[in-house]
């Protein structure tokens, strides 16, 4: 021992460092991988166009800075998200393929269009929420859900929604069920429901607040309720359905998920990046103008939200005869 110390103190020290490093590496090959993650570009599959795609691009752009590698938002739209989910599911679980997911994983599964459900993916983090809003024309006399419901009992209302079986349709069904009224659902593609409302062909429309914002500011449309637990920042004067005495709490969450089997430390690295981005003032500012509510949740809690929501959506779709 003494001889060794005499031999070369500095050399020995160097040697131990190397051995220690090797030991650490062997002991935790997983975390070694995490230290190296990310080494290449991360691909974020985006399932829909519109404002959610813009948010995804803003998120991807900011995550690139956080992670030090490019994060590319790649659009794989079609079939209500089924195409994109199927693609990400088929990728190797390395963390380099993630999906900008939403409640659509539940609607698309329960409508029978894919044969796998949310359990195929590891939640990474919730990024935020979008809260559906019910709008009528400003020249109508309805200011509250009660007034709308009373009018709907004398005349069957036409309500513009997105496609049948979409999350928007489910929310409106839940809301009108609570109001105790029966309406005609008019499905529109490509987000034309607000135009149709302005054109007077439907009596109300349930869509995302950002789609109504310009017309609300110009006093052409009036939003009479939002369906979340809290009011939405873009429309602070609009009361929630709960405030008006109707217990509906349905919002669309958006976040990131990775294929099942992605190492937990890789997930953690991505989660941290998302947390930092969502906390940044720049992201909050952009979100506000796009009508998106940043609401970070870590992976574990996000997973619980997805599971609870999936059960609720499955029940609702069964009730509506949309479950296949």
């Amino acid at each position: 021992m003494a001889m060794l110390t005499d031999l070369n103190r500095a050399g020995w020290r160097r040697c131990t460092t190397v051995i220690a490093a090797v030991l650490v590496t062997i002991a935790s090959s997983g975390s070694a991988f995490a230290q190296q993650f990310p080494r290449q570009a991360v691909e974020m599959t985006v399932l829909f166009g519109g404002s959610s795609a813009t948010i995804a691009q803003v998120l991807a752009d900011a995550m690139s800075t956080e992670l030090g590698v490019p994060v590319a938002a790649v659009s794989r739209t079609g079939a209500g998200g089924a195409v994109g989910y199927a693609y990400v599911k088929s990728r190797r679980p390395t963390g380099y393929d993630i999906v900008w997911n939403s409640n659509s994983i539940s609607t698309v599964f329960h409508s029978g269009n894919i044969d796998f459900d949310y359990r195929t993916f590891e939640p990474v983090a919730r990024v935020g929420m979008e809260v559906p809003a019910l709008a009528v024309r400003a020249d109508s006399s309805w200011r509250t859900l009660d007034e709308f419901a009373a009018a709907a009992r004398t005349k069957r209302m036409r309500v513009g929604i997105s496609g049948r079986g979409s999350f928007i349709h489910l929310v409106s069904a839940a809301l009108f069920d609570k109001l105790g009224i029966d309406v005609i659902y008019v499905p529109y593609g490509q987000g034309t429901a607000p135009t149709e409302l302005l054109g007077g062909r439907v009596d109300a429309a349930l869509q995302w607040p950002s789609q109504f914002k310009a017309q609300v500011d110009a006093r052409q449309l009036r939003v009479i309720a939002v369906t979340g637990r809290d009011r939405v920042p873009v429309l602070p004067d609009v009361p929630t359905a709960i405030e008006q005495g109707y217990d509906v709490d349905m919002v669309m969450w958006r976040g990131l998920a990775a294929p099942m089997g992605t190492p937990s430390d890789v997930i953690a690295r991505l989660e941290t990046a998302v947390r930092r981005v969502v906390a940044s003032p720049r992201f909050r500012e952009v979100s506000a103008t796009l009508g998106f509510e940043p609401a970070f949740l870590p992976a574990s809690e996000f997973g619980r939200v997805i599971a609870t929501d999936d059960a609720a959506i499955g029940r609702l779709m069964a009730q509506l005869g949309l479950k296949r």
Partner: peptide
């Protein structure tokens, strides 16, 4: 109206909103 009629103008609208 502040409402896009097709996917291309939807992207442009998004670009304006970001700013």
């Amino acid at each position: 109206l502040g409402i896009p009629g097709d996917p291309a103008t939807a992207i442009i609208l998004g670009g304006l909103l970001v700013h």
